[in-house]
Amino acid sequence: MFRRYRTVESLKARECARALRIEDPFLASRLTAMGLLPGTLIEMIRRAPFGHTYYIKADGIRLALRKEEAQSILVDA
């Protein structure tokens, strides 16, 4: 009954998915203001050299997210 959603953090490089919702309300406020909304197409580009930071594309804009931030975005993939 409870389906476990994937998060942006679990996307592999070049994998795309649509954002469903953002768990953390503070981050939701920040990310929606930047244009990452439910329904936005997200593409994982790469991880940072020291890990824990992700380079993603959301509807053509490029964003750097921390691990916690990437984990907070649920996707439909």
Partner: peptide, 11 residues
């Protein structure tokens, strides 16, 4: 202040 990254990488 909450610490976050969520940074836009410009063209």
């Amino acid at each position: 202040e909450l610490s976050y990254l969520a940074l836009e990488l410009p063209v």
